[in-house]
Design a protein around this nucleic acid. Sequence first.
DNA 1: TTCCTTCTTGAACGACCATATAATAAGGTA
DNA 2: TACCTTATTATATGGTCGTTCAAGAAGGAA
Lengths: 205, 205
Amino acid sequence: MPAKSPPKYARFSSADRRSMLIEAGLACLARDGILGFTIDRICVEANISRGLITHHFKSIDGLLAAVYETIYGKMLVVLETPDTATGKPEQRLIAIIETMFSREFFNRESLNIWLALWGEMANNPALLKVHRKQYARYRTDVESAISTIANDRGLKIDTGLVATMLISLVDGLGLEWCIEPKLLSAKVAKDACYKMLEPILGALR
Amino acid sequence: MPAKSPPKYARFSSADRRSMLIEAGLACLARDGILGFTIDRICVEANISRGLITHHFKSIDGLLAAVYETIYGKMLVVLETPDTATGKPEQRLIAIIETMFSREFFNRESLNIWLALWGEMANNPALLKVHRKQYARYRTDVESAISTIANDRGLKIDTGLVATMLISLVDGLGLEWCIEPKLLSAKVAKDACYKMLEPILGALR
DNA sequence: TTCCTTCTTGAACGACCATATAATAAGGTA
DNA sequence: TACCTTATTATATGGTCGTTCAAGAAGGAA
């Protein structure tokens, strides 16, 4: 009696294939920008047949939204890992800045993805919807870190404005570096953030 | 004897049509991002036949490079208009900041174009080449304004770092506002720049 | 087992893409 | 005038796009 023949499709679970498509989408975005984010290229990258993107994500825009949610979520998870090594409120803000400019996030591949997504945000409502949700979390993280320090030190500052300044500077530095890496290093970028914050919040480190 | 029949093509000069294609390209970029920057749409927008983009710009990427050169150039021309109303060195830097956040440049349409172009920079060598040329001018403008003030006030500062910080903050604020205009206004954005610079350079206004 | 749902493939479809090309018109020179 | 170059149009071509669809395979419940 012959052995039971192995399953034909199921080397990966359905959830696995979903993740593989997202990762392949990230790779395509990093390599060729939004113009490279196509069903053909993503399926070749993931080695998965063409029909599956529509099946799992409804449309290519659905996959793009999932991709954005994924990359933003990866960052937020690290950002929200409480740095409990010290009880100092400064530690929280320092951890955020160090994370943003760490090798894991401050690299050409990741920043290419962010740039590509920013450029499509205005033209893609599904993308904007994901952004609003994730940004709210990010914003809360940053703003609460700042206000904790300010309260601790008895400072009367416009927490929202300072958060906007920091977030803008971080994004702007990432943009500059991604386009022309020779202009600055991750260390210079970090120092720029501390340099901007210290006259407002006082020394952090 | 019949009157000479009017020319069939020449309602516009060749140079006019070149400009019209660039303007149409800008409009398409503003409306639909890089995905909307196609020969079909641009020619419909400009009401010019399809073949002419290839003729004048060699390829669609050639037009994109010309479009970037144009929008960057428009900004630099205004930026480099010497504000000679006062001889104070501060006036130069103030003029730069005020220009960047003026209605002419700090608006949804323009910023959509910048975002779309940033997203393609890494994947388009022709675009990067234009960027390097224009950015060098921009950088010189900003850095010389800063160093003039620093010299005038006898300050020992890292001019390059401060320029990087300002340029990054300006870009970052534009990005934030373009994605979510409710978060800040042009006035808040300007104030953020002054707030960042004043601890470094002293009061500017 | 049977039955239904979910998953996966691969092909087919029509729309749109950039570019090439042929034909015609305009501009300029001699 | 004749002639050459540049400008412009319109069409053709071959490729890629996203989506739809039919068919079959896998998983799970009864």
